[in-house]
Design a protein around this nucleic acid. Sequence first.
DNA 1: ATCTCTTACGGGATTCGTAAGGATG
DNA 2: CATCCTTACGAATCCCGTAAGAGAT
Lengths: 182, 182
Amino acid sequence: MDIRQLKYFVTIAEEGKITAAAKQLHIAQPPLSRQLKQLEEELGVVLFDRNKKKNLTLTYEGEVFYKRAKDILHKLRDSILEVQELREEVAGTLAVGSTIYCAALLLSKVSQIREKHPNLMFNIWEGEPSRLHKLLENRQIDAAITTTPFYSKNIESKSLPDIPCKLVLPGINHTASAEMPT
Amino acid sequence: MDIRQLKYFVTIAEEGKITAAAKQLHIAQPPLSRQLKQLEEELGVVLFDRNKKKNLTLTYEGEVFYKRAKDILHKLRDSILEVQELREEVAGTLAVGSTIYCAALLLSKVSQIREKHPNLMFNIWEGEPSRLHKLLENRQIDAAITTTPFYSKNIESKSLPDIPCKLVLPGINHTASAEMPT
DNA sequence: ATCTCTTACGGGATTCGTAAGGATG
DNA sequence: CATCCTTACGAATCCCGTAAGAGAT
């Protein structure tokens, strides 16, 4: 099993033709055909229907594996970028947004991370969930912490450990943003 | 980037020594050392501290990548097993639990899947969330559908599309189980 | 002196590309 | 006959294992 085979498979599935996929992958068709065959043999599963049609279509098993393969490839790509950016970000800036209710969680985490990376600057934003959503989509912030997660593509949400959130200040001015260089 | 390199890296991280990891992987030390070096060069990130200590320890970047790599390997393994079992399960049995509130979603899905795989039997259980949780942990059921997801290790939860759940029968006998061969 | 990681080199395996063979519309 | 997939073969690449070197305790 090889990452390359997963990439090949995903490309074939998306192109519908081995020939077209090979062109996109900048390799010749025969190797692609072989890699697909090897993948199917290794899995013991037929991934494509080869019935007379000109376009290859995924079998049911193929569809399931396609989703998984795509997810794995995305996770791998994100993981690589994450550690690479991590190395750079030791002297970079991370913009994080939070609702006022989650500020406690955010600020305690910031303290922890700043111990590890003294040169990492934080840029902290506060706002209501809808505003955080916009900031996130515009990449003005890299992450948001909220009790009401957004459900939209290109945005992943993760559950954080429960903490007691206490409202310390009345939310008078929810649209204002605060910048904290420390 | 290669799956093998990820496996190698994870093993090294868990063993703390290249020598021990190589023994466990049934390969010689030099190739392992090289693969690790290649991985670090490809990522552009130093994964281990080589400071005079006898045991290699993960750098901060290494720790992050270790978690990601382990997750990816698990997902890959699960994906392979999933499609392989899928092929076999065409004549197998799938045990699914559901709260009474989600039965509509479950039963409609069962109908869809049974069209694809006429020989796939379903074993459907009904019960309250806490009971489903136990059944799931004991592997008596393969999956559960509920409005109140469980948060525990070895259990993954996924959000399903919203459907209107209507209570058709009063939940008189929540602890009974029903088996539906069709 | 022992343990561990790194570098050097040769054999083996895997993969690619080009070329030829089938199958389908 | 045109298009696509598959099989066959030779060349290049990559990986592994053995052997030797370097560093640290």
